[in-house]
């Protein structure tokens, strides 16, 4: 604040309170509805004050959508994707920034340009890949004639097949490649002074030792920011789990199960249970964002540059 202006301060608070109402109302309605009994939630207009049935609605949602195992699945997938993305982004950025080989810019662009191909625009063909992740290699072998060559020599026909449907690998692996993460790490690694590299070289450390003992500790803040963003986005994945899991009971995630809690058109309008389910599903990423806000905001800012 530069000068005093009580009128404008009043406007400022008024606008911020209005914004607060816009943002908080949906959260509040979900929370209130999740605490109502069935007759209470069906009443019109809706009460805007919580009632006492929160626990029973939570447990109803928990058992109806079988949320226990689904939460475990979601946690495994979110953790797997987050760790995978960070590892793979750090390694690729390290390779691109600290080694001098001719194809490194090509590699960087190959990774970076995937920003232009979000999952949603390539779902149909990516799904066929998930049915057999080795299909590209099989096609390559077929096209180069290696398959027929080996068949002629050894009498064995190579059939590469690796089905990713209904498996944690299938839920995790296709989401791990990350242009954003690689870009963020690259930006950070570029700010490491040359002197640091030379000093550790002089001390006789090899590249991997430099990576683990200098770069990783230095990039801890970036890692936290990236981890927050990645965790939220992978917890919230919807379309991909929907496609690769036909075996819902064993591999379903919480976000996709939520749809099953919506009351049927002519069924009991037990929205209180639905909202209790929504509350459970939204809570983990919300807590992560609330607690990690400082780092995550920094991460997003660096992404912009």
């Amino acid at each position: 604040m530069i000068e005093r202006s009580s009128l404008f301060d009043f406007v400022t608070y008024a606008v911020m309170v209005l914004g607060l109402v816009i943002i908080i109302t949906p959260f509040w309605i979900v929370l209130v509805a999740a605490s109502l009994s069935l007759p209470e939630v069906a009443r019109v207009p809706l009460t805007l004050w919580p009632s006492s049935h929160l626990m029973e609605n939570l447990s109803a949602a928990w058992s109806r959508a079988d949320l226990g195992p689904k939460l475990v699945n979601t946690l495994i997938v979110a953790a797997g994707v987050t760790i995978g993305k960070i590892t793979i982004a750090a390694l690729s950025a390290f390779s691109i920034v600290f080694f001098n080989y001719r194809a490194r810019m090509l590699c960087f662009w190959l990774i970076f340009l995937t920003l232009m191909l979000p999952l949603e625009v390539r779902i149909v063909p990516t799904y066929s890949i998930a049915a057999n992740a080795l299909l590209p290699f099989q096609t390559l072998l077929d096209a180069t004639g290696i398959t027929s060559l080996i068949e002629a020599i050894a009498g064995i026909r190579i059939e590469l097949n690796w089905n990713l449907l209904n498996s944690y690998t299938g839920l995790i692996l296709p989401l791990i490649a990350t242009a954003t993460g690689t870009f963020l790490y690259r930006q950070f690694f570029m700010t490491i002074p040359d002197e640091l590299v030379e000093a550790s070289k002089m001390d006789g450390s090899g590249p991997m030792r430099f990576f683990f003992e200098v770069l990783i500790p230095l990039s801890r803040t970036n890692m936290l920011a990236l981890a927050t963003i990645m965790f939220v986005s992978s917890w919230n994945q919807y379309l991909w789990p929907l496609l690769v899991t036909t075996d819902r009971p064993n591999y379903g995630t919480v976000v996709m199960e939520l749809k099953a809690l919506i009351p049927a058109q002519n069924g009991t309008p037990d929205w209180n249970v639905t909202m209790a389910g929504a509350l459970l599903v939204m809570l983990p990423p919300l807590l992560v964002v609330a607690f990690m806000q400082r780092w995550f905001v920094r991460g997003l800012i660096t992404k912009d540059k």
Binding site: M16, G19, L20, I23, I24, P26, F27, I29, V30, A33, V232, W235, N236, Q237, Y238, V255, M256, L258, K259, L261, I262, W271, T274, M275, G277, A278, V281, M282, P285, L286, V288, V289, A290, Q293, V297
Partner: peptide, 22 residues
């Protein structure tokens, strides 16, 4: 205010869909 204004970022589209449908 600032920290509340960020909250929607944490939500999955289907969760918001279900909530707003109600």
């Amino acid at each position: 205010f600032q920290s509340v204004f960020i909250w929607p970022y944490a939500l999955a589209a289907p969760v918001v869909g279900v909530a707003f449908r109600f």
